[in-house]
Design a binder for these strands. Structure first.
Lengths: 186, 186
DNA sequence: TAAGACTAACCTACCAGTAGGATGGTTGTC
DNA sequence: GACAACCATCCTACTGGTAGGTTAGTCTTA
């Protein structure tokens, strides 16, 4: 793995634990074991690092989204996979969801970063929209109103529960996901 | 209004805009128009300020919760008041919900702060639980499973949507609240 | 030999926090 | 009423430390 990717992965971790404004180039350099100036060599300014991070996350989200479309499983299985993937991110309790972390820090990140952040969230909403549409079409899922609106609700709930789990523990997240599933049953 | 309260109110605002680690005593002193040392006089360390802030927020939440119990309105009206109150907090788009901000910063706040933060969230869940129970008992609301679990879901959704509205705008929050209300209709 | 990766040493700006003192109002005592 | 003791509030000036960022130069590899 190249250094740039290594830095981006560590940055993701730092973002999840501390937030964008609360980790430093010094933190990164110490953990990786190279000098602070070396991090600056790869990402001149923290703003550049932030932008690269967002593109890194977006790429990952895009790949996962495409993977979902290729899957030959039922809407229910897809939805559950999506929930499990997200639950795993905050599993050990110390890490926040990167999207949540960035949205909380919206005031201290650049406009460019904000644009990509919005695109990432939209990718997820679109994915859930198509899963919900398929689920309803096949008579496996039930919900009122437009699929798009309900997808926005599902993503909001998941993100909110991931955040609440930081104080209320991981079982809180699992219970909330369970309740969402109960609500979607026909 | 005394200085201490003035500082706490400004701290709440700063927390909402920047996050707990990203505003400084210097920020506070400049906005209020007294010296940095004077802020330290009132709150010796930032940790003390943080703790006082949590107690300040908890007191406010407690008062509001009690106010709800005294209200002689329908469960639906209560729920709507609760939603509107929260929506107003993030209305102009620059401010985050303080609870969200603190949960995102859980790693950089003290254990004492975390305990109170959890209590505040629990107060809200308990309030919504009783509103939902009343609503179902009176045949005005419909939801599956336990009221407590659905309340956790409602609070998570609201907090999540408040956070998402930072990138997706205020209409996103309104639509999500609307979808929640649709789901609760009999 | 040229480019990429890396480094020590440094810069300025800002951070939380402290020392020591000025101001002005309140309270107790004669 | 006058004086002293006090106390909350505020100030200037400072500390040690860390932030993001720069410079000028070395090492390594294709």
């Amino acid at each position: 793995m190249d250094r740039k990717t290594e830095i981006l992965q560590l940055t993701t971790k730092m973002l999840q634990i501390k937030g964008f404004d609360s980790f430093s180039y010094s933190d990164l350099s110490q953990e990786i074991g190279i000098s602070k100036a070396s991090i600056h060599h790869h990402f001149k300014r923290k703003e550049d690092l932030g932008l690269a991070l967002l593109l890194f996350i977006k790429e990952g989200t895009l790949k996962r989204t495409e993977h979902f479309h290729d899957l030959d499983t039922s809407p229910w299985e897809k939805l559950e996979t999506f929930f499990n993937m997200n639950a795993r991110v905050v599993e050990n309790g110390t890490k926040n969801c990167p999207i949540n972390a960035l949205q909380a820090n919206v005031a201290v990140i650049s406009t460019e970063m904000r644009v990509i952040l919005k695109e990432i969230v939209q990718l997820e909403i679109d994915l859930i929209t198509s899963i919900l549409e398929d689920g309803r079409k096949e008579g496996q899922m039930f919900f009122k109103g437009k699929a798009n609106n309900h997808a926005a609700l599902v993503v909001s709930t998941l993100r909110g529960a991931m955040q609440q789990s930081r104080t209320h523990g991981h079982t809180f997240l699992n219970q909330t996901i369970e309740q969402m599933k109960i609500n979607l049953k026909v």
